[in-house]
Design a protein around this nucleic acid. Structure first.
Lengths: 233, 233
DNA sequence: GTGATGAATAAGTCTGACTTTTTGTCTCCG
DNA sequence: CGGAGACAAAAAGTCAGACTTATTCATCAC
């Protein structure tokens, strides 16, 4: 998706990564490099590189004389964008989407508050543009266009917070929003109240009203959580 | 630290990782696999495995005919525990500690609120034990003992939240707390008010009072932020 | 039962040859 | 003078095979 097929080892990961993150191998399962190399029809060198990557994600552990053992889910680097993508594409997309939405509900309000303090004039303008784009596409089944502006809106907020840890969650939030639109909920036009909230957040940030930006964003994320609760209480 | 010297490629990473994350190579710098292999006196295979790991952390990008180029900081996987450790050990430990503390201030209050709803009896007991341990070591320059219980306390909260994304931040929070004790601030005994707050959080979680647990934890993290502000306003 | 010995195993490492892609350059023609 | 195409060089990518090393397990002596 992001950097597709960048070499043979990438192709191996495209298959093996989703398999592991989908839980197809129970924790403690043992894979052998040689067998994997045979299965994917690559040399051992290539296979070893792939294993190293999985190892750096804490998905597996490679030990002498025993093989490549799959680690329990609780040890995975669940913030690795690649791992997130694999899991969102796989079986536990629903619980994954849920835990990420909870994460959003913690991060985004604080980020919005900081954005109100630190956003540049340019970022404020961009934010308003996004909000306007959302309004313009909020009716008439223009979900895709709406989504584009929604993703951009939240990304600007996270960037404008001035905190690199928040900023790096832009991709994750975008995937969550996209997932929501494309699969789970939102069969019809977005909630008008949510659209209004986005406009108000843009306004609060521009006005430098941190407390208000935070509170409004909290309402947005609470709404997102409620959407999930309705679907799977 | 976590898994020391797990092979030659690990040793290479122990040197190269900190160098890159310390910004010793400006973004766009080009490294050549062969030269690196010579420098570290390892074979190309080993060097290639190390590069693959750096690549999976988005620290570098490997392209044919051009070499291994260092990516800008804005693209790094800053949530990778290994990257966090490298950065905390290096030059920008101060700003890193700051952005992580801001992250804490967003995550932990929400986590505490969830913990109040989901914590098991066992977790409640553990939490109280930690709080008591903090009280017992809050006076008389027993900073190390205090730290152990402090780290455990916050880890239990994050675990008890029931959200895997929060739970996986336990290590990060622990590193932040350890960094604070060992380097930046806290030359004397911890703030008595903070100790009291921890006891109260444990109590609120046990009582199932989510709102109170959240608010008290917010006060704790605000205090942590203020400590940093005093040091570098 | 306990401890030492040894053999089997699978990852780890190295080397050298070969392939493939990309980029820069040089030429040739308009 | 400028653009298109051909060519050459450079660096990563790939592979195969031989060898090393650590770990585990089983056997055997005490």
């Amino acid at each position: 998706m992001s950097t597709p097929g960048r070499g043979l080892h990438g192709h191996v990961l495209d298959t093996l990564g989703p398999e592991i993150t989908a839980g197809e191998y129970p924790p403690g399962s043992v894979l052998r490099t040689d067998e994997l190399a045979q299965r994917f029809d690559v040399s051992r060198s290539v296979m070893r590189e792939a294993v190293r990557v999985l190892e750096s994600m804490h998905l597996v552990e490679s030990r002498r004389r025993v093989g490549v053992t799959v680690r329990p889910k609780s040890e995975w680097n669940v913030y690795d964008p690649q791992v997130i993508r694999w899991r969102l594409a796989g079986k536990d997309r629903a619980p994954q989407l849920r835990s990420l939405t909870v994460l959003r509900s913690a991060i985004e309000p604080v980020a919005a508050g900081l954005a109100a303090r630190h956003a540049t004039a340019e970022q404020c303008a961009e934010l308003t543009q996004c909000a306007l784009g959302m309004v313009a596409n909020s009716r008439g089944h223009k979900l895709e266009e709406y989504l584009v502006h929604d993703m951009a809106f939240h990304r600007v907020i996270l960037d404008a917070s001035g905190n690199e840890m928040f900023a790096r969650l832009g991709d994750v939030v975008a995937e969550v929003l996209a997932g929501r639109t494309h699969h789970d909920v939102m069969f019809e036009d977005p909630d008008p109240a949510a659209v209004t909230l986005h406009v108000q957040v843009a306004e609060a940030v521009r006005a430098g009203d941190a407390a208000r930006a935070e509170e409004l964003t909290r309402e947005i994320t609470v709404g997102a959580l409620q959407e999930l609760d309705i679907l799977a209480p």
